[in-house]
Design a protein around this nucleic acid. Structure first.
Length: 491
RNA sequence: GGCGCUAUCGUCUAGGGGUUAGGACGUCAGAUUCUCAAUCUGAAAACCCGGGUUCGAUUCCCGGUAGCGCUACCA
């Protein structure tokens, strides 16, 4: 399906891609895909002081990682300065804008004074009625001028927002805002309108923090005698304290979640559900299904708290349902990133063994980081023993003897498979008069260093007989050597 | 302060003039089991307040309150 719908995502490179920005990008993308339209990427780098080129690269990477491919761009505002100046000049010639010689310092003073007197402040129009002669004189004095838009004295501007509905603002509440700074750089308002016009954007989908800006921009479209795009504002994403999500709430950038081992599909699914519910009761929704049912009119009007717990749950759902073939390369990346290369160095861990290991572990992984982290013992012999697990499962003095005996019998178990290893262990337990669970738990700690792991016999198969036997023996040694000096006390 | 917007379980939300107000995450309890995860069963948990309209409002209208946003020569 092809349509002439054109939307854009326009981040400014003053920070990494924020999850709020990511959701805006996602909704734009879903809307375009749903309607058969195009998404244009634009970089709003007109703030020379705060914009950093390397951040643009990072933003692009994050978008790609999320799978939100844009159709045109990126277009850089910093390369279109002439266009903005020309537009400001046009507006000036048409009497819809005027040069303003007030300095930021002067304005700041007036603003502060008004505030201290608890008077509402908006630009007082000092330069509004300047004559051409006044302007010549000021320019001759070397004064720099910004260009301000002349807001009509009366009337109201209204628009129908796809998500928020009817919005109305009285012109008396709007000030003559700056279009072009005195250094010749455009402000946000000028850049957005000029670009959205030139790029023939049909739908402006952006954060609700821009609702108040919209009437100003509509006024500009009207002054330019240009058609106004359709607007759709998205509720904001909040932290747990209901304050706008920021660094102090922890990770806010897409890149940070990537580094924490979150899958892009999970983050996308989670973000999609923050403010929008696809038809049906399912929470795990495939991207194709989202595209099919996406509807801006169904987007919520209220802000949403970013719930890390739910993201974690969703990530584990995606991790679990990922085909091993697709999970395997991701795990390998994590392992080598953690210096664990591709599993055991002795070559015992073949590709197939690695696959089985990952398959065994994937149902209990919360993030990709669990593989080099909590599951470390499955990939290297250099792992630590959890003191809590040791305390809980190795407290019986007979454990050392049992583990030694178990090692011996495992060495002789034929076949070394699920049924064989289990039979061996249960037989030993019965002979020694201990509950199988005691032996199983003690062995689990010996093999993984943890009190928590997959089923013991699955673990044994994945580790392989040699490794099982040696780890059981080492554990027995460790226990004997520490007897009487504190290991059993957990320190 | 001014202006704008919003308001259903702790969180994300469905719903809508008459419902036992539904689902999901989380929480708690139980089942299962070698631990954990998963799974299954069950439980606690919400319509911000006040007026109006109406036979009947959580739903529609108004007001209040609260929260958020904007109030820059940031975006």
């Amino acid at each position: 399906m092809v349509s002439d719908i054109r939307v854009r995502f326009a981040p400014s490179p003053t920070g990494y891609l924020h999850v709020g920005g990511a959701r805006t990008a996602l909704y734009n993308w879903l809307f375009a895909r749903h309607a058969g339209g195009l998404m244009i990427l634009r970089i709003e780098d007109t703030d020379v002081d705060r914009s950093k080129p390397e951040l643009t690269t990072a933003i692009l990477e994050s978008l790609e990682w999320l799978g939100l491919k844009w159709d045109e761009g990126p277009i850089y505002q910093s390369e279109r300065l002439d266009r903005y100046r020309a537009m400001a000049l046009n507006l000036e010639r048409a009497g819809r804008a005027y040069p303003c010689f007030c300095t930021p310092a002067e304005l700041q003073t007036k603003r502060a004074k008004a505030e201290s007197e608890r008077r509402p402040w908006k630009y007082d129009g000092t330069c509004r009625a300047l004559t051409e002669a006044d302007r010549e004189r000021l320019r001759a004095e070397g004064k720099l001028a910004a260009v301000r838009f002349r807001v009509p004295d009366s009337g109201v501007t209204t628009f129908e927002d796809i998500v928020f509905g009817h919005i109305e603002v009285d012109h008396r509440d709007l000030e003559d805002f700056v279009l072009l700074r005195s250094d010749g750089h455009p402000t946000y308002h000028l850049g957005v309108v000029a670009d959205d016009l030139d790029l023939r954007i049909t739908h402006v989908i952006r954060g609700a923090d821009h609702i108040s800006n919209t009437p100003k921009q509509i006024l500009m479209y009207q002054a330019l005698e240009a058609p106004t795009p359709i607007f759709a504002h998205l509720p904001l994403i909040l932290g747990p304290d209901k304050q706008r999500l920021s660094k102090r709430h922890g990770a806010t950038s897409v890149g940070a979640y990537r580094e924490q081992g979150v899958l892009p599909e999970a983050l996308v699914n989670f973000l999609a559900l923050l403010g929008w519910t696809p038809r049906g009761q399912k929470e795990i929704v495939a991207i194709e299904e989202m595209i099919r049912s996406f509807d801006l009119a169904a987007v919520s009007k209220s802000n949403a708290v970013f719930d890390l717990e739910k993201l974690a749950w969703m990530n584990s759902e995606y991790l679990r349902s990922l085909p091993v073939e697709r999970l395997l390369p991701l795990v390998k990346q994590e392992l080598s990133g953690a210096g664990l290369a591709m599993g055991f160095k002795d070559g015992e861990q073949t590709e197939e063994k690695l696959r089985q290991t990952v398959f065994l572990l994937q149902s209990r992984a919360r993030t990709l980081k669990d593989f080099p982290g909590a599951f470390r013992a499955f990939f290297t012999d250099d792992f630590a023993f959890d003191p809590e697990a040791v305390k809980k499962y190795w407290k019986d003095a007979a454990v050392a003897i049992l583990l030694d005996e178990l090692a011996g019998r495992m060495a002789a178990t034929e076949p070394f498979d699920l049924a064989g290893t289990e039979r061996t262990l249960r037989t030993l337990a019965e002979e020694k008069g201990v509950k199988a669970g005691v032996l199983i738990n003690a062995a689990r700690v010996a093999l993984t260093g943890q009190g928590v792991a997959p089923g013991l016999f699955d673990v044994m198969l994945v580790l392989g007989r040699n490794r099982v036997v040696s780890r059981l023996r080492q554990a027995a040694d460790r226990l004997r050597s520490s007897e009487g000096h504190g290991l059993s006390q957990g320190n």
